[in-house]
């Protein structure tokens, strides 16, 4: 095979590889909302919030039952 054409083929293969490499890293979003949704999906809620909340709620006074007349009137 002609060494010149072999080098061309090799260059072309190299170029295809690098374009695939960079293209595979590109993420495309059609709108600002899609972008925000992807960010929201990637955002983790720290577990510590639930632990703190459980602790706070366990320290809350239990709600007093409604008097009978309030339940009757539906207020």
């Amino acid at each position: 095979m002609n060494p010149q054409s072999q080098r061309l083929r090799s260059d072309s293969a190299q170029s295809n590889l690098s374009s695939t490499k960079s293209a595979s890293l590109v993420h495309e979003f059609q709108s600002a909302e899609d972008l925000v949704r992807a960010d929201a999906a990637a955002t983790q809620v720290p577990a510590v919030i639930e632990q703190r909340l459980a602790q706070s709620i366990s320290q809350e006074p239990s709600a007093a039952p409604k008097p009978w007349w309030k339940r009757l009137l539906g207020t």
């Binding site: 590109v26 993420h27 495309e28 979003f29 709108s31 600002a32 899609d34 972008l35 992807a38 960010d39």
Partner: peptide, 12 residues
């Protein structure tokens, strides 16, 4: 026009 992002880690 679509939004193109290279690094998802930088998105936030």
């Amino acid at each position: 026009s679509p939004f193109r992002v290279l690094e998802i880690s930088e998105l936030g």
